[in-house]
Design a protein around this nucleic acid. Sequence first.
DNA 1: ACGGCCATCGGCCGGGCGGCGGAGGCGACC
DNA 2: GGTCGCCTCCGCCGCCCGGCCGATGGCCGT
Lengths: 220, 220
Amino acid sequence: MLRVLVADDQDLFRGGFSMILNAHDDITVVGEAAHGAEAVAKAVELEPDLVLMDIRMPGVDGVEATAQVCRRTDAKVLVLTMYDVDEYVYDALRAGASGFLLKDVRRDDLVRSVHLVAEGESLLAPAITRRLIAEYVGRGQARPRLRQRLGELTDREMDTLRLLARGRSNAEIAADLVVTEHTVKTHVSNLLTKLDLRDRAQAVVFAYESGLVVPGDHEP
Amino acid sequence: MLRVLVADDQDLFRGGFSMILNAHDDITVVGEAAHGAEAVAKAVELEPDLVLMDIRMPGVDGVEATAQVCRRTDAKVLVLTMYDVDEYVYDALRAGASGFLLKDVRRDDLVRSVHLVAEGESLLAPAITRRLIAEYVGRGQARPRLRQRLGELTDREMDTLRLLARGRSNAEIAADLVVTEHTVKTHVSNLLTKLDLRDRAQAVVFAYESGLVVPGDHEP
DNA sequence: ACGGCCATCGGCCGGGCGGCGGAGGCGACC
DNA sequence: GGTCGCCTCCGCCGCCCGGCCGATGGCCGT
């Protein structure tokens, strides 16, 4: 028997979801919550298999509540939202949500989704999947064109760009490369010209967009 | 009427999918292909709205065929596979596939998926979604600490940082925000202090590392 | 041997950038 | 009503940055 907790600040939705789910023999709605804090508290208390979580709630919002639930219980979290896509989606996924559905989901889809998520699968509304895929493959599209331009740079200019892309000053780069600051300035100037950039800030942007440096490989 | 091309090297599947799809009034299977090369040729010739593509085929495989179809036609590609998850999935997505389903998909799911993909949505089998999310979330580990510091910024400082992170100069930012360049300099100065950064180049680095901006959402 | 590319250095200079002090208006909160 | 934070704007100043002209030596290919 699947034990489910429903968290939504709107009574209408809360009741609707509960009824839909309770109509199935293998699902039991063990509790309801009207805001994030209550959702976390009841999740800890009732230990449901799954929490159906609205993303927009007063006080502690769905994202924070999702993070709390994932950290403090074994429950899966299936997030619901009215609006098709906003940044909360990605925050919720990072917080540990296993699924993301729009509230216009069909009843049988909702039920099937609950089963799937409870079994450990993940699932996203199609519109959200599209975004996620776009972002995922996006990393391999604009790159080649930019990466190609990187080929025009000499070895030393590449070294300079790599350090520049980590926020180092000319003096620091000079120290790292064991050359004069003037030499660094020459390299910087040349690479800016070759890549058709205006200043070092744009060079940093280029470094990230081209994939030369990747968010995360930035050690202190 | 949705025009569909079915590409699968196994006659049994090809016929089965065609029958299932043809059973619906608004779907027509306009052709079948037994291998990648034939799939591409028929896609170009028949101009279907959607190609149902098996990933494993002799000769030109589904990934290469997907890339060709996406480049040479306007057809969407919905990829099918027997095995739950392998690296082909990601290659297919990069090649331009709009969806990815396992062959154990239920009939009504298949039909609904065909409709969704034809309408421009994307969709993945739950098991694949889980992997994709896991990979996506994996990139966001060191982030929370940095993202937290973003909270210290005021709205205006955030606006400034976003523009700054795209390589804009103070004057350009001022024009975008409709304020004086001096005001922009104030915001820049304040956000540098709050985030403990030295110059705008480091601010760009911070913007990428914190996830405020993501490589790829950078339109020309 | 010659020209070309690269890396390294020098000097000069204009301008964008960033820090500092100050100030007025505005809404929120106590 | 007072205080505080935010946004907005002003002036000044030091400095890093980036462009420009030039020079040296080393390594390549023809």
